[in-house]
């Protein structure tokens, strides 16, 4: 199956002499078109889970399958090109590149792969228009509102047309109205484009937009709803 599958994933970190398990035997599967949320207090292992699902970290034990590809055995270089083509990260607003305008933020991703084609430019523009940024293509991040910036981050995650979308606290530093708006837009794009999406958040108001909600506590993942 396509989508994202984690099987019995354990991640241990060395801390001085002892080892700490940040994730304990975590299993999770997300189908295309599904939008799930992971909540939990800080330090519970949410970010570690997201990093492993996003090919930023390797699990100590267990398997991670993205589109049926096991990323557990990949080398650093393969991982970075895998992230480029198969994973879309929605990062926090502060993670836009300050000297690139809205359109260039998206084209940068295409640039990393090689030459930017006319088709990619068209797709990027359509994506931005879809997210209500059609008039802001040549604005720089400091000229945008917080909500607009987050929408640029969403567009950037979709521009490589990957099957898996991972969102890291997309509503942090946004007020309620804007936060709802942003999450609704993620949901819309996920459903529209049939992606498997995971959102890490500690904002419980956003959960009504998600198909499933998992809770993470001390490295253990449980289905809540």
């Amino acid at each position: 199956m396509t989508g994202l599958v984690l099987k019995n994933v354990t991640k241990s970190f060395k801390e001085g002499d002892s080892t700490v398990d940040a994730l304990k035997n975590v299993s999770l599967s997300v189908n295309p078109g599904e939008f799930i949320a992971i909540i939990g207090p800080s330090g519970s292992g949410k970010s570690t889970l997201l990093s492993i699902a996003g090919a930023l970290l390797q699990p100590s034990k267990g398997e991670v399958l993205v589109n049926d590809t096991n990323i557990g055995q990949m080398k650093e270089k393969e991982l970075s090109s895998f992230r480029l083509t198969d994973i879309g990260f929605i990062l926090q607003t502060s993670n836009l590149i300050p000297y690139l305008n809205v359109l260039d933020q998206l084209l940068l991703v295409c640039k990393m792969k090689g030459k930017v084609t006319a088709k990619e430019v068209k797709f990027a523009k359509a994506l931005l228009k879809d997210l209500g940024l059609g008039q802001k293509l040549s604005k720089f991040p400091n000229e945008l509102s917080g909500g607009e910036r987050q929408r640029v981050a969403i567009a950037r995650a979709f521009v490589n047309n990957s099957n898996v979308i991972l969102a890291d606290e997309p509503t942090a530093s946004l007020d309620s109205n804007r936060a709802f708006e942003v999450v609704k837009q993620i949901r819309y794009e996920v459903k529209e484009r049939n992606k498997a999406a995971v959102m890490v958040t500690h904002d419980e108001r956003m959960l009504e937009f998600c198909d499933k909600v998992y809770r993470m506590e001390d490295g253990v993942l449980t289905l809540e709803r």
């Binding site: 970075s80 990260f89 490589n160």
Partner: peptide, 10 residues
């Protein structure tokens, strides 16, 4: 760091 997370190579 952000660019590398998105998939930029060194």
């Amino acid at each position: 760091g952000v660019m590398k997370a998105i998939g930029a190579s060194d």
